[in-house]
């Protein structure tokens, strides 16, 4: 623990530069943070950086919204497919040939 408070000058500078870089990260890097935040808890500065970025970047805000909407839609459709009472009328179906082939296999 103690060693953390005894950083040399160059280490402080490195740390500061790292934080500066995070706070100035472009959209390409911010989207990586946004994605990774779905899987793990980000370090404090990285989290702060992408949250600040989202405050002023409407394109990245849309990126987040789109992925969330897609996730919600995919989980909903998967849930519906698991529930026979909610069968949707549209969507791809087994072809007649595949259906016949499977039927034959099941009889055998």
């Amino acid at each position: 623990m103690v060693s953390q408070y005894r950083l040399g000058k160059s280490q402080y500078l490195k740390r500061l530069l790292h934080i500066w870089h995070l706070l100035n990260a472009p959209c390409s890097e911010i989207t990586e943070s946004i994605s990774r935040a779905q899987e793990t808890e980000l370090p404090f500065w990285e989290r702060l950086a992408y949250k600040l970025h989202l405050l002023y970047c409407s394109a990245c805000r849309r990126y987040v919204r789109h992925l969330e909407a897609l996730r919600v839609a995919l989980r909903r459709i998967a849930g519906e497919l698991r529930d026979p009472s909610a069968d949707a009328p549209v969507g791809p179906k087994l072809s007649a040939a595949a259906r016949e082939r499977i039927r034959r296999e099941l009889r055998y």
């Binding site: 990126y63 909407a69 919600v72 909903r76 949707a88």
Partner: peptide
Amino acid sequence: GPRKWRGDPSSAFDNA
């Protein structure tokens, strides 16, 4: 990059 989307992914699944 990211444009405004027409429609919502949830209702898009109603479309073949």
